[in-house]
Amino acid sequence: MGDQCDTVAAWIAREIVPHEAAIRRWLARRWGHAVDVEDVIQEAYCRLAGLASIDHIDNPAGYFHRTAHAAASDLMRRAGIINFTLMTRIEWSDVMDGEPLPDQAMEASQELERVRGLMSALPDTCRRVIELRRVEGLSRKETAERLGVSENDVKNHLVRGLQKVMKRMAEQDARMDGDEQADAGRKAERIGKHRPH
């Protein structure tokens, strides 16, 4: 799992991470009672990281969606839940051709903004560490000297920042779940309108 799959890793960071919240909500709403959302998310990342190439994926959000769907289906099959057709019928129309409906594209850009906002909430020292390391290109030792902390602290600041961001994002999602429930009906209606037959 070294850096030989760097392209895929960079792609995941840029194209997949911003959609995680949306996928999480979708999983929780549709399948939350049947599968563990965390398990599905982790399995989906696992599958994405296993991609040999990402050149054929022109719609990362849709791909993530399908990957999570496949991961959830497998988990459910393994758990012996067979009849999930009805549950997923509406959601399936979303992935009809791999292109987001216009309003979903809007949502995606909002997700991106939200993730940016989340990142800006990184603790100051953690931000500073990243700036020194990635913008100024300092080594860990130089970074530690500049900040007057130990090299180990440099890592600890990063770890805490990362943990905080990931936690906060899961919390945000938990809060938004309520609104999403109410949205589900409207969404189904909207999809119906897009498909006039």
Partner: peptide, 21 residues
Amino acid sequence: RHRGAYIRARAWLRAAEEAVV
């Protein structure tokens, strides 16, 4: 699941770094 969580954490770290940059 460890594998998935690790990949996810690396991706988030990278995304955070890119956002800061």
